[in-house]
Amino acid sequence: MAGTVAESMTPNPTTIEANRTVRDAAELLASGDVGAVVVVDDGEVVGIVTDRDIVVRVIATGGSPEDPVRQACSQDLVTTTPDADAAEAVRIMRDRAVRRIPVLQGGSLVGILSIGDLAIDRDPTSALADISAEEPNT
């Protein structure tokens, strides 16, 4: 069982500039077989966007795939550091009802921690760990 965030996080997450389009984000999600893309503005982490965000915040409200991705992303971010306690990260995720936390070191993005990452590391026999460890469906 991991003690620190660094032991569970996914390093080098996919990023997209905030002024790029929702379509660009969707293409990154699809081509990278990832569930989330970290949104940055001049290198600073400003949000996270998921396929669900695109559907709920853009498509369902009459938006366009050409809208800037900043309009689709979650912006009230919680971040952590690689040396933070993994149990504390779990508590934060539970308290804030978030599924992913960007991991910053010295203000720079170094990883992302998801509930799937934690499940694989902390409870490898759970259904969530099994699902998270599988190759994505295409």
Rank of each mutant, 00 (worst) to 15 (best):
I92W: 06
D85I: 02
I54K: 09
A89C: 04
V78K: 09
D95W: 13
T80V: 09
Q71K: 13
G62F: 09
D83E: 15
R52H: 10
T61I: 13
V110E: 09
A89R: 00
R91G: 06
R91W: 00
L109F: 07
A87T: 02
E66Q: 14
P102M: 06
E66T: 13
T50M: 11
P68E: 15
G111M: 01
V56A: 14
R100H: 12
L77C: 07
G43H: 06
V69I: 13
I48C: 02
Q105W: 02
I59V: 14
M93I: 01
S74P: 05
V56L: 15
D85V: 04
G62N: 05
D85W: 00
I101N: 01
G106D: 01
V46W: 02
I101F: 07
V90W: 03
A86I: 15
T81W: 00
A72K: 06
A72T: 09
A97S: 10
V110M: 10
D76P: 04
A89F: 05
E88Y: 01
V98A: 02
D83A: 10
S64C: 07
A97N: 15
G106A: 12
D83C: 08
I48Q: 05
P82D: 03
P82S: 01
T50W: 08
A89G: 06
L104Q: 02
A60T: 03
R57M: 07
G63I: 00
V46E: 00
S64D: 10
G62D: 05
A72S: 11
A89L: 10
D51E: 15
R99K: 15
D41N: 14
D51H: 09
G111F: 03
T50A: 11
D67Q: 02
V69R: 05
I48W: 05
V69C: 06
D95Q: 13
R57I: 04
V40Q: 04
D85Y: 03
D83M: 11
E88D: 11
D41C: 08
A72M: 14
A87G: 13
V40N: 04
E66I: 11
T50E: 10
A87S: 14
G107L: 08
Q105D: 14
E66R: 12
D76G: 09
G106R: 01
D85S: 06
P68S: 06
G106N: 12
V56N: 10
S108F: 06
A87D: 15
P68Y: 03
V46G: 05
